[in-house]
Design a protein around this nucleic acid. Structure first.
Lengths: 135, 135
DNA sequence: ACAATTGTAACTATAATGTTTACAAATAGA
DNA sequence: TCTATTTGTAAACATTATAGTTACAATTGT
């Protein structure tokens, strides 16, 4: 299972989007999530580097860096989740066994197939859909 | 990311399927994976409970409980992976904030949507496909 | 210059995983 | 019936990732 980073990041983006240009601080966002400002800033930093939000010292987040309709959940996921693979694969198999020798490649292929579908699905959902759901 | 339990289970099922009726012990399977027999037995136990393999004390695994073409990777996943949700959701949000109050439901919906596709994809792949790839 | 806020590093607690040891229960085969 | 073998399961440990916290240098609007 993936961590809460992804869902917390969507929360952060939603607060920023709905503040409509008025700057919001990591403190304010943290109080909406009920968590720590430093954790919020870590994620904000990643979102900024990914070109999703604007933020400045002394002011806070001043808005999305592009329209909510163009921010896919895939781009959010890629920005903040360290482990992007769906499945871990046991690497150190016994290559003298016919199954052990080939299973790695087969599992990689399965992972790729499922993961591609997964990312395609994330690509279809945009921050604008989230905002719509929050109304 | 999901643990290696899923991929290790596929490895276990492959070894059992390819032994073609001849019993295999957890010790033998563990040597193919390069891991511990106890770990293999834990997963075998789960696979047996899920009705995917046959195993007996004093003999070992005696085969698949049904044809490889009818064992989907979804059934394997469901049998052994404890956390079946794709995303963790931060629960304790501030409900006095308009975003905090509603974001949980919205994220649940997103999770459901992506997870459904993910499981549909796993359902399409069967153990027989894995065995084909091992040839 | 000052005060506020980001951006980042370091530390702690907690939980899950992977690994290992151990042993009771079951049972095939002598 | 006895014995040796293997499952099935519990318990302990090391490692890793996450979540949460404290701290502080760097930045910058006023």
């Amino acid at each position: 299972m993936y961590s809460t980073k992804f869902s917390v990041s969507i929360h952060i983006l939603s607060v920023i989007a709905l503040s409509d240009g008025k700057p919001v601080t990591s403190d304010y966002i943290a109080s909406s999530i009920n968590t720590n400002p430093a954790l919020v800033r870590r994620l904000m930093s990643a979102l900024k580097k990914a070109g999703l939000i604007k933020a400045q010292t002394r002011i806070g987040a001043t808005g999305l860096a592009k329209p909510a309709g163009t921010i896919s959940l895939k781009s959010v996921f890629k920005a903040v989740e360290k482990e992007q693979r769906l499945f871990a694969i046991h690497e150190d198999t016994n290559h003298e066994c016919p199954v052990g020798a080939k299973i790695g490649d087969v599992l990689e292929h399965v992972n790729f197939q499922v993961q591609t579908k997964f990312e395609e699905e994330l690509e279809k959902i945009h921050l604008s859909d989230i905002l719509e759901g929050l109304k």
